[in-house]
């Protein structure tokens, strides 16, 4: 302390930050105490988990047609939702780009995007199941909404980052607004758009395996039924298939992104 008083401290103590950390730690301990997160409770849980895992192995090698129907429906939901979602997100993203559109237009588009983003896809799926009934249609519509929310925002940001010099040069040739978009804006953002779209396909593949749990079609319904019937070996088969699907999706989207670099 005395040394610090005479010399200039190179790393002065940041008391607000220290207080914030201490407060966070204290709150975490308090929150944990609310839920009786004790070691005994954990051991009971682990024991239960061991029995659950035991019943999962070996995975069921059967019910292939059920698995196939569920998985293919999930893939179809993801593909259709991504395609339509991206298709709608492109104009919405353009309308939300503040460097190309008048302010009042961007407010509307940004409002729409914020609305699409406010709910988790599962909540949207529940709404659509109630609105249009059980099945893939509800799942597709739910994922379209979440795709618009996510992709349109990224599109808008990508457009806002383009070089306006290139746009200016094309405008100076007397090009129409459509031609300026096509030849000066699109070339600058296309590679990123494709990157975003493939990420969204990844994410929609994951989500399409979920929407079935609330009645939105796809493998989720099969998975949920298997849980409820305690067919844990079939559950494991489904989970492994989903992992395989996601990995394949990852590889394919990576390949697409490289192609359009």
């Amino acid at each position: 302390m005395s040394a610090a008083a005479t010399r200039r401290a190179p790393f002065p103590a940041n008391w607000p930050a220290r207080l914030a950390w201490a407060g966070l730690a204290a709150y975490t301990v308090y929150a944990a105490s609310l839920f009786e997160l004790t070691w005994t409770r954990f051991l009971v849980g682990i024991d239960n988990g061991a029995r659950f895992f035991d019943r999962m192995f070996p995975p069921l090698m059967g019910k292939w047609d059920l698995l196939w129907r569920g998985m293919s429906e999930s893939v179809e939901i993801a593909l259709i939702a991504t395609f339509l979602g991206v298709l709608i997100a492109m104009p919405v993203g353009l309308l939300a780009a503040r460097n190309l559109m008048p302010a009042w237009v961007t407010w509307g588009a940004r409002g729409l995007i914020a609305m699409c983003r406010s709910f988790h896809p599962m909540i949207v799926a529940i709404l659509f199941v109630k609105a249009v009934g059980f099945g893939a249609l509800a799942g597709i519509m739910a994922l379209i909404v979440s795709s618009i929310g996510f992709i349109a925002k990224l599109f808008a940001e990508a457009i806002e980052e383009i070089s306006l010099k290139q746009v200016e040069a094309v405008r100076a040739t007397g090009a129409s607004f459509a031609n300026v978009l096509l030849m000066a804006v699109v070339p600058q953002v296309l590679a990123r758009f494709i990157g975003f779209a493939t990420y969204q396909l990844d994410s929609n593949l994951r989500n399409s395996t979920m929407v079935g749990i609330v009645g939105g079609g796809g493998i989720g319904a099969t998975l949920f039924t298997a849980f409820q019937r305690f067919d844990y070996d079939f559950v494991l088969t489904i989970l492994i298939t989903i992992i395989a699907l996601i990995m394949i999706g990852e590889v394919v989207s990576g390949w697409v992104r490289r192609t359009f670099q």
């Binding site: 010099k165 290139q166 200016e168 040069a169 094309v170 070339p187 600058q188 590679a191």
Partner: peptide
């Protein structure tokens, strides 16, 4: 700065 469309 030329202002070419870089990716074309």
């Amino acid at each position: 700065e030329y202002n070419l469309v870089e990716r074309l």
